[in-house]
Design a protein around this nucleic acid. Sequence first.
DNA 1: GTTTTTATTGACTGACGAGTCAATCAAAAT
DNA 2: ATTTTGATTGACTCGTCAGTCAATAAAAAC
Lengths: 195, 195
Amino acid sequence: MPRTGMEPLRRAALVDAAIAEVGVHGAHAVTVGQIARRAGVSSALAHHYFGGKADLLVAAMRQILRDFGAAVRTHLAKADTPEDRVEAVLRASFEPANFRPEVVSAWLNFYVHAQTDAEAARLLRVYHRRLHSTLLSDLRACLGAGAKEGAETLGALIDGIYLRAALGPGSPDPETAIRRAMKVFSNMKEGAHHG
Amino acid sequence: MPRTGMEPLRRAALVDAAIAEVGVHGAHAVTVGQIARRAGVSSALAHHYFGGKADLLVAAMRQILRDFGAAVRTHLAKADTPEDRVEAVLRASFEPANFRPEVVSAWLNFYVHAQTDAEAARLLRVYHRRLHSTLLSDLRACLGAGAKEGAETLGALIDGIYLRAALGPGSPDPETAIRRAMKVFSNMKEGAHHG
DNA sequence: GTTTTTATTGACTGACGAGTCAATCAAAAT
DNA sequence: ATTTTGATTGACTCGTCAGTCAATAAAAAC
């Protein structure tokens, strides 16, 4: 049933399928055939639209990063004070959608993938820089001098909580993750005042 | 030149080579041939001693975990107060040896590998539990009620700082990592005292 | 000195996966 | 009605890799 105008639909389906399958099998172990099957098309079509496996994986990563960026903007739009804005970043980071096993797993795998794929590494650096500068500008208002270090600590903490979520079943739920990170943040403010 | 008594030497060389090659290529992408070549033997010999690729990777992971455990014990032996013991754990975690690119990368890859390999997952859980209970018992002395949460936060922070080290070139050096984590720890104590 | 054990490999197999390509089918354009 | 264009795939090639096996060679045991 080749109706015209399928390309964007197929691309989207393949990217979604890639995220899900990477979550299950890992970025290296996943096969184009698995992704294509989940998307309901042949592996030849996946190659037709994306050129190769690497391009498909990069597209999947770009999608994840875009979704995350959108979530950050959405949450930031509702925040006024620097404190609210920090919490907004945390809420975006630990949104239930991001804790879906296949998403967490895909993130983790993309971190690894970035070690060997230059384009993936570039994307990840952009994401890190953006997150860092967002946190930094808000922390400056709360912490003054220690803002840079604080932003790096919070960034690392976010990733660390993520990492733990990628493993065993006893993972933290979103609310716990937010509360835990906010606690570290409020401790930072306390620490900055006297000391 | 088949001298007898080679087995333990070959096993050790293969495990070391596996760690290094996993660091370079990733757990899934690495081949038995690459590992064997680095160890200076044929791939057939690697199979002879280890049975299969999965067993070799698990052995490599076990080695990393064992090294880390030994480092923790060494540092703990020199610590008396709970505060010193927490710092000892941090020093062991962020020891320069652990920041060698291939080691960081191997850790990261094993995290991913554990998602699909049951034995790897088990090993990682054991490591997590041990680290957690060590931190927990020391934090109880400093923080009382918030010890459990504090231990989980510190554990996640350690992993997060590691994760960042696995990426771009602007990674933190060991001393910075320790200072940063200790700052979070001391903030926790402050926070526990008043309010 | 013969047998057994240990170390070691080259050569092979069997499977699987990425990527290509020519062919098919239907809608659109002419 | 014919041509062009987009969608789609089955079948194929080529490479690679895990794992096997029989053969070799030296040390050790007898």
